[in-house]
């Protein structure tokens, strides 16, 4: 921090006293304990950085063996996962991961936007405090608990809705479900279970808290002067939100949404409990059978030999790269939207 930087002071003096007009340098003198403190904390920083860089390095070095075996191009385009017969690739799981994350984002983003506007603009006093606490609590709920809720409570109740969508909007390929006769009077919901859609819904509830807290933080920073200006010009509350809060919070909305996307891409156990894994490229999100990289790793690691493990490491590395890119971008957007908002108290 700049507090400890050395500063130069130039006193105003008459020009003829040239020897006195030299700027006086103020220097920091660190004592022995200060040097020890700086050294020890610096070491801590290096260790943490090393651990974090080692994660990527280990995955890459372990995964490269499997990728070399089949070639990078084939690894990226093969849908099947059979390392024992050298026929494996991440095309299907990568697409599945992106589909689940997309469903989650589509559901979570409006929910988070509405909740954070509710917290900052509508609710007041104790209600605001309670809501903030509850959103933080939602973030702390373990993913296995979310997975159980999704598999045993949400799924039996949501399949009718899935069926309704596929009956009425089945002409759109995305909502098409094969092997179901809409005219049949039997309540056959099995083809609608364990789908991308249901996994996406559960993941959506898991990423709402992080999105909400980032958006809430950015909405709170919208300046009071502009808010009152909008009200003084006769705006309604929504008019004020549309013209002041949302434009000022744009960075927070985009950044928070992307942070949520990063979480959604890496979610494991909840998806693992819900989906029935398939290794094919498919776009029918309501249909039984889905997959994601993280769920595949959790599913396959126990039955893997050393080479298959190397293949899983390669898949893990691609997931790692994807989440890091998304997250770095999100952090940069949030940091940019925050700049200049802080001031020393």
């Amino acid at each position: 921090m700049s507090t400890f930087a050395s500063a130069t002071l130039t006193p105003e003096r008459p020009a003829d006293e040239a020897d006195l007009a030299k700027p006086r340098t103020l220097r920091n003198t660190y004592t022995g304990s200060d040097h020890a403190f700086r050294g020890i904390t610096f070491t801590g920083g290096i260790i943490v950085l090393a651990i974090m860089l080692l994660v990527g390095a280990f995955l890459a070095s372990n995964g490269i063996q499997a990728v070399n075996e089949v070639g990078l191009g084939k690894f990226l385009t093969t849908a099947n996962w059979a390392p024992e017969s050298n026929d494996f690739g991440i095309a299907a799981v990568l697409l599945g991961t992106v589909q689940i994350a997309a469903v989650a984002l589509l559901v979570a983003m409006p929910l988070a936007l509405g909740t954070s506007l509710f917290i900052t603009e509508v609710a007041g006093g104790w209600l605001r405090k309670v809501l903030t606490s509850m959103v933080d609590l939602l973030a702390a709920v373990p993913s296995v608990v979310f997975g159980l809720w999704g598999a045993y409570m949400l799924q039996p109740n949501i399949v009718d809705f899935s069926k309704w969508i596929s009956v009425w909007f089945g002409w759109i390929p995305l909502f098409q479900v094969d092997g179901v006769d809409p005219a049949s009077p039997l309540r056959d919901t099995v083809p609608f279970t364990a789908s991308t859609f249901i996994a996406g819904l559960v993941v959506a509830m898991m990423i709402v808290p992080i999105q909400t807290s980032i958006m809430t933080e950015s909405f709170r920073r919208a300046p009071v002067g502009e808010r009152e200006g909008a009200f003084a010009l006769g705006a309604t509350r929504w008019g004020m939100i549309r013209t002041v809060v949302l434009p000022f919070g744009k960075g927070g909305i985009i950044g928070g949404t992307m942070l949520g996307l990063g979480r959604a891409l890496g979610e494991t156990i909840a998806i693992y409990l819900i989906i029935s894994p398939v290794f094919e490229i498919k776009f029918h999100i309501l249909e039984k059978g889905a997959n994601s990289i993280a769920a595949m790793i959790a599913l396959k690691y126990s039955e893997s030999n050393e080479f298959a493990m190397s293949a899983l490491m390669a898949a893990g590395f691609s997931l790692f790269l994807m989440t890091m890119v998304v997250n770095f971008t999100a952090s940069a957007i949030i940091a940019k939207s925050r700049s200049g908002a802080d001031s020393e108290g």
């Binding site: 950085l49 280990f58 690691y301 952090s331």
Partner: peptide, 25 residues
């Protein structure tokens, strides 16, 4: 600044990737 950027990105480290890392290392 470098450490802070890396740490912020790592808060979204997929949990299964952390498991894979320890498994490999």
């Amino acid at each position: 600044k470098v450490v802070r950027t890396v740490v912020e990105a790592m808060t979204a480290l997929p949990s299964v990737v952390a498991g894979l890392f320890i498994y490999a290392s």
